[in-house]
Computed example of a mutant assay.
Amino acid sequence: MAVKLQVTFDAAHPPTLGRFWAAALGYVEDSPPPPFTTWEEALDAMNVPLDQRESAYAVVDPDGVGPRLWFQRVPEGKTAKNRVHLDVGVASHLPREERPAAVRARVAELEALGATRLYEKDELGSFWVTMTDPEGNEFCVQ
């Protein structure tokens, strides 16, 4: 049996957080269900009220390899450290001495998208930077 993996994020504004992660991972907005060509058409047909149209958002790997990411609006803000986080791998294919520069370059790109750098670690033969996305969710770049 094939298992489809989806990672769900609670968010204050799902489209904004979803667009950040799409840019961070090279993902794209999920397509509307057939026969619709736009989300506006689909939401109209589903009678979704205008004030609820930004309550969810999804992005997908255009190559169909990575999990779908689903962002759902919740009323409460983030209150504690994540129990699960994403690791964004950018340098594992490089020789060890080249990895910090590659990771730092990607970190700078993610900062330009709205992420915040928390700290760097160089331990156990690995180098990574812990960051937060625009809504404060921790993730690592390695």
Results as ranks from 00 to 15, higher is better:
33 P>A: 13
33 P>N: 14
34 P>Y: 03
36 F>A: 05
38 T>M: 11
38 T>G: 09
39 W>Y: 09
40 E>A: 13
40 E>S: 13
41 E>F: 15
41 E>D: 14
43 L>R: 04
43 L>I: 02
45 A>V: 07
47 N>L: 01
50 L>Y: 06
50 L>M: 08
51 D>P: 03
55 S>V: 01
56 A>W: 04
57 Y>K: 00
60 V>P: 03
63 D>Y: 11
63 D>I: 10
66 G>V: 00
68 R>T: 12
72 Q>E: 12
73 R>H: 05
73 R>S: 02
73 R>K: 12
74 V>T: 12
75 P>L: 06
76 E>I: 01
77 G>R: 13
78 K>E: 04
79 T>S: 10
80 A>H: 14
81 K>R: 15
81 K>F: 13
83 R>I: 13
83 R>F: 10
83 R>Q: 12
83 R>N: 10
84 V>L: 15
84 V>A: 12
87 D>P: 01
88 V>Y: 02
90 V>M: 06
91 A>C: 13
92 S>T: 15
96 R>I: 02
96 R>M: 10
97 E>T: 06
101 A>L: 08
101 A>R: 08
101 A>W: 04
102 A>P: 05
102 A>W: 07
102 A>S: 11
103 V>Y: 11
103 V>H: 09
104 R>F: 04
108 A>G: 13
108 A>W: 11
111 E>P: 09
112 A>F: 12
113 L>R: 09
113 L>H: 08
113 L>D: 09
119 Y>C: 15
120 E>F: 15
121 K>H: 12
122 D>W: 02
123 E>R: 11
123 E>N: 11
124 L>D: 15
125 G>N: 04
127 F>E: 00
128 W>T: 01
133 D>E: 03
133 D>W: 00
134 P>L: 15
134 P>H: 14
135 E>R: 00
137 N>I: 01
